[in-house]
Nucleic acid binder design. Sequence first.
DNA 1: TTGATACATCAAAATATTTTGATGTATAAT
DNA 2: ATTATACATCAAAATATTTTGATGTATCAA
Lengths: 90, 90
Amino acid sequence: MVSFSDPFRLEIIDLMMDGEVCVCDIMKLTKLSQSRISYHIKILKEASLISDRQEGRWVYYSLNKEALFLIKEWITSLTDYSSNKKRCCE
Amino acid sequence: MVSFSDPFRLEIIDLMMDGEVCVCDIMKLTKLSQSRISYHIKILKEASLISDRQEGRWVYYSLNKEALFLIKEWITSLTDYSSNKKRCCE
DNA sequence: TTGATACATCAAAATATTTTGATGTATAAT
DNA sequence: ATTATACATCAAAATATTTTGATGTATCAA
């Protein structure tokens, strides 16, 4: 969750919406430096938000749907539980 | 989204799961200082994640469900779109 | 109207995150 | 073998965020 906290990471996540991307794709699409991208990628990976797959010299990154689903569930639980508080007697 | 980036803010959000809370409630439940709580509350408010309601000397804060719903929708769009990429021909 | 409570705000200090540029590693092409 | 490419990692510098403690404002009770 905390790894969503940087606008460039959100940008990288948005790029992955279209499917797998390598660091070189992100470089072309964002004009961020390579080490800067690797740094943000690392944080996203540590948060399990993305998965990686190596193919020769390239590493392809993509969104980890399970992790995103868990976050959605957490948000749902936040709102659902507080809805229940309005009702009573059960 | 960026306002989710602090563990104490996540803690405060979790407290609001149970319904409205005032700063004094959060103080009792978390042992954080008052100004520290106000600081985090301010960030959550600026992100529209919470709403407030004053009642006498107390200010009650609660989760803003619309904002949370929008975040869920954004996450859904991330995963749904990349699912579509796997299918073809439509 | 005085004092207490609940909370906001502020500036300075403390701390954490991000960026940069250099260097390292693995793979692959020549 | 040598060189180039793709990416990771590192330490130092730059920058941003958070914490603290003091002060300010509004409401309420005595």
